[in-house]
């Protein structure tokens, strides 16, 4: 069953917190992974790997660079579920 955007945001926030220690409340759609949340490229890949498993989607490597903000990731995962 497909997850809603709110569920994906909440799930992503949990993953980001688990992998980097950033507070879940700071993981908001407008936040940039690198500039606002200070997440480096390897940590970003751990988030991708965990998100793929959690939401049962595939996020190709060439898409990862387009996921600048948390909102971008939520949107991509939502679409990828379909």
């Amino acid at each position: 069953m497909a997850h809603t955007e709110d569920e994906i945001l909440a799930g992503l926030a949990e993953i980001v917190n688990e992998e980097t220690g950033v507070e879940t409340s700071d993981v908001q759609p407008e936040k940039s992974f690198t500039d606002d949340l200070d997440i480096d490229s390897i940590s970003m890949m751990t988030i991708v790997v965990n998100a793929e498993e959690k939401f049962e989607v595939r996020i190709p490597d060439e898409e990862v660079k387009n996921l600048v903000t948390v909102g971008d990731a939520v949107k991509y995962i939502t679409g990828a579920q379909a």
Binding site: I42, T46, V49, E53
Partner: peptide, 13 residues
């Protein structure tokens, strides 16, 4: 058990 895609990106470091 889960495939190569699931490997932790921090594995080598």
């Amino acid at each position: 058990e889960r495939g190569a895609r699931r490997v932790n990106p921090f594995t080598v470091p």
